[in-house]
Amino acid sequence: MHVIHTARAEDDTVLEVSESIWPADRGTIIDEYLIDQEANVPDVPSQI
């Protein structure tokens, strides 16, 4: 598994870039992100 990670500040400035290569049978991916507590109601219907 080849992973390139870029960390950015709130103003979108790049703080860090790292590259890792791991055997695919030994890696675990955990993707964490914030989810708003309140639902966002779109202004227009989805085009999908």
Rank of each mutant, 00 (worst) to 15 (best):
A7W: 11
S18L: 06
A24E: 08
Q37A: 13
V3F: 14
A7K: 14
V17H: 05
T13S: 15
I29S: 08
R26G: 03
Q47N: 05
E19Y: 08
T28G: 08
G27Q: 12
S46V: 01
E10L: 15
E10W: 08
V17S: 03
E38T: 10
I29D: 03
V41G: 01
E16T: 12
A7T: 14
R26K: 11
A7S: 14
L15P: 04
E38Y: 06
D31Q: 11
T28K: 15
D43V: 12
I29A: 10
V3G: 00
R26M: 02
I30G: 05
I48G: 13
S18Q: 09
I29W: 09
A39P: 03
I30P: 00
E19S: 10
D12P: 01
D25W: 04
P42K: 01
R8T: 07
T28V: 14
T13L: 05
V17W: 04
G27C: 12
P23E: 04
R26P: 00
V3E: 04
R26E: 04
I35S: 08
W22Q: 06
L15T: 05
I29R: 09
V3I: 15
V17N: 03
E38V: 14
D31K: 12
V14C: 01
H2V: 05
E32I: 13
L15E: 00
T6Q: 06
E19G: 03
A24Q: 08
E32N: 14
G27H: 10
D25Q: 09
D43I: 09
A9Q: 04
T6H: 05
H5T: 10
S18F: 05
N40C: 06
T13A: 15
D12I: 05
S20D: 08
V44W: 09
P45W: 02
S46L: 03
S20V: 15
L15F: 05
Q47D: 02
A9R: 07
A39V: 09
V41K: 07
E32G: 13
W22A: 07
T6P: 00
I29K: 08
I21E: 11
H5Q: 11
Q47Y: 04
E38H: 09
V17I: 12
H2G: 05
S18N: 07
E32C: 12
H5I: 10
D25G: 03
D36R: 11
P45Q: 00
V17L: 02
D12F: 11
R26Y: 02
E19L: 02
I21A: 10
I35G: 04
G27R: 13
W22C: 05
L15N: 02
E16L: 15
D25K: 08
I4W: 06
D36W: 07
S46H: 02
Q47P: 03
T6R: 11
V14Y: 02
